[in-house]
Design a protein around this nucleic acid. Structure first.
Lengths: 187, 187
DNA sequence: ATTATTTCTAAACGATTGTTTAGATTTAGT
DNA sequence: ACTAAATCTAAACAATCGTTTAGAAATAAT
């Protein structure tokens, strides 16, 4: 009994996510969001409530974007080799976007680490913790080493993941791939 | 023939640097700077010209803060072992501050990567390039390997440094130190 | 003590931030 | 065709941003 929306929320939130990814939360203004999402402020607010609402939805969008990669990772069963492939897939996703930013969630954790927004911090932290657990499980499959060493390797690889996120914005894809090779030649 | 300043610029810029380190550039307001530096806006502007001026001086302050560590690194002569020690010193500096942030310059590179402020980006980039050259030189001292492999290892270690910066904000000091041990056990 | 010069306080600046509102426009049901 | 409900445009909102300015307070030289 009323007019129809001229945009699909999943489409505009994907554009918002890319904008936040490039610029971070604070440097992204509503004006930029209007332009990038192709709709105006009223529509943004009626769909997502606030700028923060758009950002939270963007984080979900990012997670669903990498979800397929996570599923593939979870289902694979070659242990450490899966983690290596996971890193390659991560690099591919960043390169596909053409951006030189690290992981959106890692960047978000950094930007919000001193703020008092527990919801955002919790979402990011749980994402990282899940990843850490996944890594640990993979190591159990692919190795016969004792647990304490496994834990250390898991930490090592999780940190390597952060390093990948940070380094991918200052190094070429080739260098990152060299890095992956060297990392895994030591395990 | 006139009144004396009631603050020393080196002292207030050190406080500003710590504030920028914790919060990043965009989330740090003049109001916060006034409070943290202990002087008011007029004094800030007469001493540093602008918020950006305070930030540029803060970056210099950060560099001079780690300069001693760099000098020690440059003068040492145990090759790869020096790099390892350099990483330990880096961790110590962060822990000393009590913050859980990565390297200020790495964070700055991330925050400004999409902005059009070439001066800041150039300063950060040259810092990283210098570090990379230093690493390469250290590898030459401590190793007899051929050049292409040396270059790869240098990249690897520089990326490890970025990883350290990124990971130090989500991992404990003990985990970071485990990470350093594992990194160097593979070289 | 007066003057000149600088730093201080504190208020105000215009611009931009995120957010809201009023009214025109469009659609669907009666 | 008319009405009701939702989306659109576009202007305005208060708050905050970085920045500037006017005037009081303080110092050093004359």
């Amino acid at each position: 009994m009323a007019r129809k929306k001229e945009y699909r929320e999943e489409e505009v939130i994907d554009k918002a996510m890319r904008l936040f990814w490039r610029n971070g939360y604070e440097r992204t203004s509503m004006q930029m969001l209007e332009k990038e999402m192709g709709i105006n402020k009223f529509s943004i607010y009626s769909s997502f409530g606030s700028k923060r609402g758009v950002f939270l939805e963007s984080l979900n969008c990012y997670q669903s974007k990498v979800a397929a990669m996570f599923e593939k990772f979870k289902k694979a069963s070659n242990g450490v080799e899966d983690i290596k492939q996971f890193f390659y897939d991560s690099v591919a996703i960043c390169a596909e976007e053409g951006n030189e930013k690290g992981c959106l969630l890692t960047n978000t954790y950094n930007e919000f680490s001193e703020s008092d927004d527990p919801e955002i911090k919790t979402q990011v932290k749980s994402f990282m913790d899940n990843l850490k657990l996944l890594f640990l499980e993979k190591l159990r499959i692919g190795s016969n080493k004792e647990d304490s060493l496994l834990l250390k390797q898991a930490n090592f690889l999780v940190i390597a993941k952060h390093g990948l996120a940070a380094a991918s914005r200052v190094n070429s894809r080739e260098e990152i791939e060299d890095y992956i090779e060297m990392t895994f030649s030591s395990i």
